[in-house]
Simulated scan of single mutants.
Amino acid sequence: MRPELVDSPDFGSETDALLKVLADIPVPDVDPYQALLLDREDLPDPAIAGRPDPRVSLEDLTIELPGRTLEARVYRYSMRPRPIVLWLHGGGFIGGHLRDIENAASGIAANGNVTVVSLNYRLAPENPCPAGLHDVYETLGWIREHLDGDGRIVVGGQSAGAALAAGACLLARDEGAPLPDRQILCYPTLDLHPDADWHEWYFPTDDVPTAAVPLRADTLAGLPPTLMLAAGRDSLRPDALAYASRLKQDGVPTRLVEYADTMHAFLNFPAALSAGRHAIELIGADLRSAFSAPRP
């Protein structure tokens, strides 16, 4: 499947500059788990992560699921019932927080004329696979029952969050639950990657459910229409391209967009990467088109 290519002379230079900034951040001399805990406490730098879109209202809420309570933040562009987008941060299944992606979540709400729910799902190694996957799947049901939307639901996210979104759609299909109306997958990790830092913590056993590695599903038929975003300088680019191709082959309406010469996680850094800003607007336009919403 040939992607739509989004390119700019600025993408490469902006990516190089940001990678240098990130490489210069000191690494604490502690064991890997303590380093992970410290990383989870870091607050995003607005100079690279941006700030919430001022056009939306923010509300924190708690989602009560069997045996646990999850934190979430709601971004509303309109007080009228609108489609609800469950949006999931990345972080390799072991890190990340909804505060890391406030610009993206709020920007999608504003540009898409939708309500966005950004979720803090459970993380490994404390809660390995499939804990986060079940959080996302059950939160979709919770949203249908408790939030005042217009009945249409989208699930999407970034990196590990995109993998959980894809997996939740597979679970819904296979268990006969209501499917989201659309899935938006930004540079997802969709297969086993044994060399990744997070692999052994997220997959501590060989008993891996298919929904946790969506590329290994026997068929993708019956899944929701899909918007897939890939990054040209991302080691996970093959996952995105392969999944988009399989979706299309299995009859799922699929749009594949690749951002040339930019990095994994570029949506986390919209203040530094124009590719991130463009992608937030593109996702918003895609949602407006899917739901025939007027431009904000």
Score class of each variant (00 low, 15 high):
Asp53Met: 10
Glu59Thr: 14
Asp29Phe: 00
Arg237Trp: 01
Pro66Thr: 08
Leu215Cys: 05
Pro224Arg: 07
Ala212Asn: 03
Leu223Asn: 05
Glu102Gln: 14
Gly156Lys: 01
Pro54Gln: 04
Gln183Leu: 00
Glu138Phe: 07
Glu14Leu: 06
Ala244Gln: 02
Ala230Arg: 09
Tyr77Lys: 13
Arg216Asn: 10
Val56Lys: 12
Ala230Gly: 14
Ala285Glu: 04
Leu58Ala: 14
Gly12Thr: 02
Leu19Cys: 09
Lys20Thr: 10
Pro204Val: 06
Ala168Met: 02
Pro225His: 04
Tyr259Met: 06
Asp53Ser: 06
Val27Glu: 13
Leu185Pro: 08
Gly151Arg: 06
Arg68Ala: 06
Ser8Leu: 01
Lys20Ser: 11
Ala275Tyr: 07
Glu126Phe: 15
Leu86Tyr: 02
Arg68Glu: 07
Ser274Glu: 07
Asp42Ile: 15
Arg237Ser: 04
Phe269Cys: 04
Asp60Cys: 05
Leu22Phe: 15
Ser8Lys: 01
Arg51Asp: 04
Leu247Trp: 12
Ala285Tyr: 00
Leu236Tyr: 13
Arg255Glu: 08
Ile108Cys: 05
Pro180Asn: 13
Leu22Arg: 15
Ser235Leu: 14
Ile153Cys: 00
His97Asp: 14
Ala49Arg: 13
Gly276Glu: 00
Tyr259Ser: 05
Glu41Thr: 12
Asp206Leu: 04
Asn268Ile: 00
Asp174Pro: 10
Pro28Gln: 02
Asp197Leu: 11
Asp150Gln: 04
Gly251Trp: 11
Asp39Lys: 15
Arg144Val: 04
Phe291Arg: 09
Tyr187Gly: 00
His97Asn: 15
Leu247Phe: 13
Pro214Glu: 03
Asn111Tyr: 11
Pro125Gln: 14
Gln249Phe: 07
Pro83Lys: 12
His193Phe: 08
Ala177Tyr: 05
Ala244His: 08
Thr219Lys: 03
Ala104Asn: 06
Gly95Ala: 14
Leu86Phe: 09
Leu88Trp: 12
Val155Ser: 01
Thr139Asp: 00
His199Tyr: 15
Arg51Met: 07
Val252Ala: 02
Ala177Pro: 00
Cys169Gln: 10
Pro296His: 07
Asn120Phe: 13
Arg233Val: 01
Ala160Thr: 12
Ala231His: 05
Pro66Leu: 00
